[in-house]
Simulated assay, not measured.
Amino acid sequence: MTKESTLLKAGERIDELPAVGIKIIQSDQVFAFSLDAVILSHFVRSNHRHQLKIVDLCAGNGAVGLFLHEKLGGHFTEVEIQPRLADMARRSITLNGLDDRYRVVTDDLANVYQEVPKDSADIVVCNPPYFTNLPQSEKNPNPYLAVARHEIKTNLSTVVNRMSGLLKMNGHGYLVHRPSRLAEILEKLAAARLVAKRLQFIHPRMGRDANMVVIEAIKDGKPGGLKVNAPLIVHQGQGYSPAVKEMLYG
């Protein structure tokens, strides 16, 4: 019996992101990472100069944090409220032999200061739920996916507040979200002492409107100086664009 088979539970599979040499335990029954996790991890700046403290909020099955294992030196804390997803993240960490660098906290991110002290993190990343939780909102019938996509268990205000609270002065926060909420995001970041310094719009195809945006902010950074990267085009012809192929396959 292989190590992989002993770590898998019913309805699960192992997917790989060849570009970073990471295997992730997934399940369509509850959750599987998508391209936004790959794009967010790719957007994060490399840093091996220090033994960093990194926190991944709304970690799901741990994909974003694990995809950063080569780019960032230091220790990762993955925070995920759904126990089944947190369990998948723990087993993916073991699968990749990274138990010494990662730990998973199963809790509401609102309680994160009980596990990670305020003003102690160098980097905080988050792939949060994108959609507000309104009574008329059409939600996925799968409760795991509904929580991952809608602000049922947390919301943008709490995400931004905890991101700022965790970060040291001049620490870096990274977020992926929907462009339709960009004005709200930038307003909340600024109110929480997070100065947006870099963003990039993600377009499904050339000539199509952006459907994702990734943002880098610095806690107590100098005002101004926002850089907008060239747009990322996801699809070209019948497949992925060269830029996205490189993210996926190296």
Score class of each variant (00 low, 15 high):
residue 155 N to D: 15
residue 214 V to S: 07
residue 27 S to V: 03
residue 214 V to A: 01
residue 97 G to K: 06
residue 2 T to V: 02
residue 39 I to N: 07
residue 148 A to N: 04
residue 177 H to Q: 13
residue 160 V to M: 15
residue 117 P to F: 00
residue 162 R to Y: 04
residue 216 E to L: 14
residue 131 F to T: 10
residue 173 G to D: 00
residue 43 F to D: 09
residue 123 I to S: 06
residue 30 V to N: 04
residue 116 V to E: 07
residue 59 A to D: 08
residue 76 F to A: 06
residue 240 Y to S: 02
residue 35 L to N: 02
residue 122 D to C: 10
residue 38 V to K: 00
residue 109 L to R: 06
residue 224 G to S: 04
residue 161 N to Y: 13
residue 162 R to H: 15
residue 98 L to K: 11
residue 27 S to K: 04
residue 167 L to N: 14
residue 193 R to A: 03
residue 171 G to R: 09
residue 143 P to F: 02
residue 225 G to W: 03
residue 51 Q to R: 12
residue 61 N to Q: 11
residue 138 E to N: 10
residue 200 Q to T: 08
residue 163 M to R: 06
residue 199 L to G: 08
residue 102 Y to F: 15
residue 26 Q to W: 02
residue 135 P to D: 06
residue 211 N to R: 09
residue 146 A to Y: 03
residue 127 N to K: 01
residue 72 L to M: 07
residue 242 P to M: 05
residue 78 E to M: 15
residue 48 H to S: 02
residue 59 A to Y: 06
residue 85 L to G: 01
residue 196 A to S: 13
residue 3 K to E: 11
residue 7 L to Y: 04
residue 179 P to Q: 08
residue 151 E to S: 12
residue 113 Y to E: 14
residue 174 Y to N: 04
residue 32 A to G: 08
residue 87 D to T: 05
residue 85 L to H: 03
residue 47 N to K: 10
residue 190 A to H: 14
residue 250 G to M: 03
residue 149 R to V: 01
residue 178 R to A: 14
residue 166 L to N: 14
residue 167 L to A: 10
residue 73 G to M: 10
residue 139 K to V: 13
residue 72 L to Q: 00
residue 248 L to Q: 13
residue 9 K to T: 05
residue 156 L to M: 15
residue 111 N to L: 08
residue 212 M to E: 14
residue 93 I to N: 08
residue 68 L to G: 09
residue 147 V to I: 15
residue 232 L to N: 09
residue 45 R to A: 10
residue 95 L to P: 06
residue 86 A to D: 01
residue 91 R to C: 06
residue 199 L to T: 08
residue 128 P to I: 03
residue 184 E to Y: 12
residue 108 D to Q: 00
residue 53 K to S: 10
residue 79 V to E: 08
residue 171 G to M: 03
residue 12 E to N: 05
